[in-house]
Amino acid sequence: MFAGIDVGASATKCMIVDESKNEVASAVRRTGMSLRKVADEVYKEALSGAGLEPDGIKVVATGFGRKNVDFADSIRTEISCHCKGCYHHFPRALTIVDIGGQDTKLIRTNVEGKIIDFKMNRKCAAGTGAFLEEIARRMDVPLEEMNGLALSSEREIEIGSYCTVFTATEILSKIREGEKQKDIVRAVFGSVIKRIQEMNPLIGDVVLTGGVVAHNEILFDLLEEALGREVLKPPKPQFTGAFGAALYAMM
């Protein structure tokens, strides 16, 4: 058995796979303040879910808290792990878009699954999960209702600002203009898609992954609309990094 633990900025994920690379168990929790503790908790939860003991299981840690997982056998960045995880599901040249809590990453791979280049958003929250959380709070919409609200939108409006604070100001003016909440929320998701398109050309087969898209499937629709073609969705997008880490544990 092999385990991958992805200590992300918002959530910590663990996935255990068998020799055939099939999922045996997984677990997820909010990351919180103690990275070591939460890593231990998700790991134990996944182990007990599968009725396993930790003996003999190889563990690879990834994510921003990877260095805090002291029981891991090795570490690998989330960039390599997302790439590994996505390539397993879609073995061809890919453009991978991982929307995380604090950053968005764009990774391009060749047909062998090797990284050609990658980019991370600049030191700014726009286009990330943190951006959506902030806007949800400002608009007084529970985060988990954002996706549903946006799906019910009937009118297309646009939000053009670059930065989280300016976007909040722009939203205030939309509210003043009498725009509906659901249309504004959809436009907020639309602005996430725009930020991604500015980062790198989205060439060839595009995969969307990460916790934000797992909870907000409208992002698939909006990106497909923007690109005019299908966007690939890995099973359990939130766990792609943890899955990739487990695949590294196998190597």
Binding site: F64, R76, T77, I79, S80, I115, D117, M120
Partner: peptide
């Protein structure tokens, strides 16, 4: 950003390794 720079550099070396 120390966090972003560290991860970017580490990932770049992983890219070269592979």
């Amino acid at each position: 950003s120390d966090e972003q720079a560290t991860t970017n550099i580490e990932a770049f070396i992983e890219q070269l390794e592979e």
